[in-house]
Design a protein around this nucleic acid. Structure first.
Length: 322
DNA sequence: GGTAGACCTGGACGC
DNA sequence: GCGTCCAGGTCTACC
């Protein structure tokens, strides 16, 4: 049987290079962006039969107005549907042209570049684990943790690529083993507990994404999860497509000082930042993030030229100071 | 409600 | 090359 290729029609304003290289997770395993061919490679975990994860490597490219995803094996019809859904989530294809226009009406700075979509993971589980691995740690360690999680616990596709671990696999892993083999440190127990909460259905993406669920309720729920504090919850909110809150950390403080010219204590700077982004209302995270991203691109060149192994490892507050 | 200190890793720094 | 210090967000204990 021949390898599967599927095509996806994105919104007319979609730009693969711009919209993949829009958030740091595109630099984390198992994602791999190739700047030369402008292609996104990664292994997706599909479910040929319920409870039987079946990894498949894919390469996503854009040809004119269409997206193409080529796999390293033949996919069943059900798997094709799952792959399509996961790719749509990663590329935020549900952000329509009209929604992008609404954002650009509120913040015209990004109208010219067209930035409105933020890259994310094929599953909420991966997004939450990636968020926990980005807390209280320098970026190079986040890169290591995600690479190790995939190498140690991720299934393998026919061509040998590693997938991101499934909730079931992570839930079965002993915390001590996770710490020793994946270098996640004290996050070990919290990650295993999160995986168990996904398995049990306690973390319900449908409820968290439902427009009928208020931002306040979603945020409050996220704060109850192990390893999730105000920063992580704010970040997961944006990964759910809820942009009405900020996710402020030390990098935000650096941005406030270096780019916006704020002075005072960290607490005062955080207050200035909240006030600065307030006019952007339901879009404030996007306004904040693209401002930050713009600064990175001024320092390091267009994000679609960044390589995971070189430029991608240099994002630490210390290195960005000058 | 606010705050201090512990948690773990890896990079920076001094010797 | 080795030891020490520090950054980073969350959690717990305490006031």
């Amino acid at each position: 049987m021949s390898n599967t290729r599927i095509t996806i029609r994105p919104p007319a304003d979609f730009d693969l290079a711009r919209d993949v290289c829009s958030y740091g997770y595109f630099l984390l395993a198992p994602n791999h962006w190739d700047p030369d061919t402008r292609s996104l490679f990664r292994v997706l975990t599909l479910d040929a039969e319920p409870g039987t994860p079946a990894p498949a490597s894919c390469r996503v490219t854009q040809n004119g107005s269409g997206l193409s995803a080529r796999f390293d094996r033949s996919l069943t019809r059900a798997e094709q549907s799952q792959a399509r859904e996961q790719i749509r989530r990663m590329l935020s294809l549900d952000t329509t042209e009209a929604e992008a226009r609404d954002f650009h009406k509120v913040d015209q700075r990004w109208k010219k570049s067209g930035r409105a979509r933020l890259f994310r993971s094929p599953t909420l589980f991966e997004d939450i684990v990636k968020t926990v691995t980005s807390c209280n740690v320098a970026w190079p360690s986040t890169i290591t943790m995600n690479a190790r999680l995939c190498e140690v616990l991720g299934g393998r596709s026919p061509s040998g690529g590693h997938a991101f671990p499934t909730p079931a696999k992570l839930a079965r892993t002993r915390p001590a083993s996770l710490r020793a083999r994946c270098r996640v440190g004290y996050r070990d127990q919290r990650l295993v507990e999160l995986a168990k909460l996904f398995r049990s259905g306690h973390i319900d993406e449908a409820w968290l994404s439902d427009p009928g669920t208020s931002d306040d309720d979603a945020f409050k729920f996220l704060l109850t999860l192990p390893g999730i504090g105000p920063y992580a919850a704010g970040n997961i909110m944006q990964l759910l497509g809820r942009f009405s809150r900020l996710a402020l950390d030390t990098e935000s403080v650096r941005h406030g000082k270096a780019v916006l010219g704020y002075t005072g204590t960290d607490r005062q700077i955080l207050k200035h930042l909240e006030a600065h982004y307030e006019p952007f209302g339901d879009h404030k995270f996007r306004s904040y993030w693209f401002e930050l991203w713009d600064f990175y691109e001024q320092k390091k060149g267009p994000a679609h030229t960044w390589d995971r192994e070189t430029t991608g490892k240099t994002f630490t507050a210390a290195l960005l100071k000058d």
